[in-house]
Design a protein around this nucleic acid. Sequence first.
DNA 1: AGCCGCATGTGAACGCAGGCACAAAATAGC
DNA 2: GCTATTTTGTGCCTGCGTTCACATGCGGCT
Lengths: 220, 220
Amino acid sequence: MTRERSIPEAALPRLALYLRVLGELTENGAERVSSDELASATGVNSAKLRKDLSYIGSNGTRGVGYEIAPLMHALEGTLGLTQNRSVALVGIGNLGHALVGYSGFAERGFRISALFDVDPDLVGIPIGGIVVEHTRRIPEVCPERGVTIGVVATPGQAAQGACDLLVDAGVRCILNFAPVVLQVPSEVDVRKVDLAVELQILSFHASQHGPGTLPRVVNR
Amino acid sequence: MTRERSIPEAALPRLALYLRVLGELTENGAERVSSDELASATGVNSAKLRKDLSYIGSNGTRGVGYEIAPLMHALEGTLGLTQNRSVALVGIGNLGHALVGYSGFAERGFRISALFDVDPDLVGIPIGGIVVEHTRRIPEVCPERGVTIGVVATPGQAAQGACDLLVDAGVRCILNFAPVVLQVPSEVDVRKVDLAVELQILSFHASQHGPGTLPRVVNR
DNA sequence: AGCCGCATGTGAACGCAGGCACAAAATAGC
DNA sequence: GCTATTTTGTGCCTGCGTTCACATGCGGCT
């Protein structure tokens, strides 16, 4: 029962990163790790790493390092991964299909337990073992299956409608891939992944790097 | 020739957002917009928005607002979108296929001009009009086609190798979907999209919201 | 059993980003 | 032509996140 309410938002992606890398270290047979080792493996400053871990009340041992197994448990507990989370996916297009097939979710304890689309050719068809339901059934199906996280992978025009249905269904955490700004009540938490924006940011940096130069082959 | 080197990193995703929303406003027939209007349409504080726009040396008219067309040109110029950017995609799995079919890239001037995979069943097959090449041909094909941005959508184990080949090919901007920390020379810019991490962050917030409660149906 | 060395945990300073509030500027009206 | 109104552009302040550096505490060695 660690009542640490004060984990900086900026630290959360790093905590997830530490968890993943610790898993890899375990597979390689490691049992302990120092902050410097984990820092270089994750590309994070070691002081920042130690501070991040201190947020979750975790205890390493001075002069020794961190015991990997309990540290991973602490991270999983903090990130809420101990309770297997049920995910609903709305919009079974190209991206939706890819998400259903993505193994990384199951590896972290996320189970896609409901699929929704408006396409009559899709409704009723099982994909990855789950039968696609019509989007209008979101408020009915999601509570039945204990959905806590909704993923919106619809085209832009349909995204707000899908989001509204999810909110009606009691879903308070939404991951949005559609290129629109979703309007939600304040108690709902939305994260946005916009692939075009990512490319535009890279494009900006490409312009800054070598203004007006063609890519050049580096001799190895 | 705006030599404004000092655009805060945090402003870049917002600039891309403004650009997209301005495009939507144009489709609706608007020609001018005030910072307050654009701010509420994007969910950004209006002072922050004006500051963001001031970074790109853009000039609105006091008392009137911003002329949409020149503002969009300024944004496109700053983000480097005026030069049509050529993108290489490595790893044609589920996600790779979805990315090839994603229309949002072309809408922003990004052209996927090269596909790579190691699967002999894929090499030689055209997908979306582009023939898949073997990954080993990256250093040869990318310079030919003027690739400036590389997208890594391989499984985790293959990602570093794909990345190294892209770097050898002179690609200095990489978007990485694989759940690994890529090691690159300092002049190369990597952005990371990790879907599992996004879900874990939401999971954390779900735990914080209503600790230990099942989702509840909100009566509408 | 006591001391030495080493890695953690954290206090403090720094830098960046966000937000308020106002001055500057440009148009419209008189 | 002058004034009032409106909206931009920005100086300043506040708060958060990152980094440095050091004190703290634990295990190992003799």
